[in-house]
Amino acid sequence: MNVFRLAGDVSHLVAIIILLVKIWRSKSCAGISGKSQVLFALVFTTRYLDLFTVFISAYNTIMKVVFLAMSYATVYLIYMRFRNMYDSENDTFRVEFLLVPVIGLSFLENYAFTPLEILWTFSIFLEAVAIMPQLFMITKTGEAESITTHYLFFLGLYRALYIANWVWRYHTEEFFDQIAVVSGVVQTIFYCDFFYLYVTRVLRGKAKMILP
């Protein structure tokens, strides 16, 4: 465990908590892509099947269980509890365009052709693109509430810190995970445009982020 990894995990946790608390407090999921949240729940489910096969540490187990529970809670709030506030008209990204290539790639490029390894690879590839329905929704409506942008900021920060973690691990442990690093870098690129807007608009005190 290095400082980048820990900070990355904390950012990830903060992002998910921000979203959950926002939905709970405002009793609304307006502007939130339910599709992205379902994809994230699928990411955690397929990746953390290793909870049943290997024990790494108490930290590892607790964080995995917390991520799983919170992602399912978010999906529950959007599609069940506050479903009448769910903005389905603007959440129109076609997820099959993500799922089909991601499923195909995880069968082609993996560390071992076993169900658990294919599912692990699937989760890594899917996480790289899971935010696209949310970014698509913001582009479509042309705006995002600042709290939604804080969520996206911490999610992007988590990805950036994981890259720093891999650079650190490469130099100190000679660890290099090709699948995770390549898709992690791709994923981080999706946030760059958003980061620019976040710094130039939201951090200058705008209540909403309006796209140019």
Binding site: D9, D50, V54, I56, N60, W120, Y162, R169, D177
Partner: peptide
């Protein structure tokens, strides 16, 4: 090993 590291990262 490399595999354990993968399962260690979240």
């Amino acid at each position: 090993s490399q595999e354990l590291v993968r399962h260690d990262e979240l």
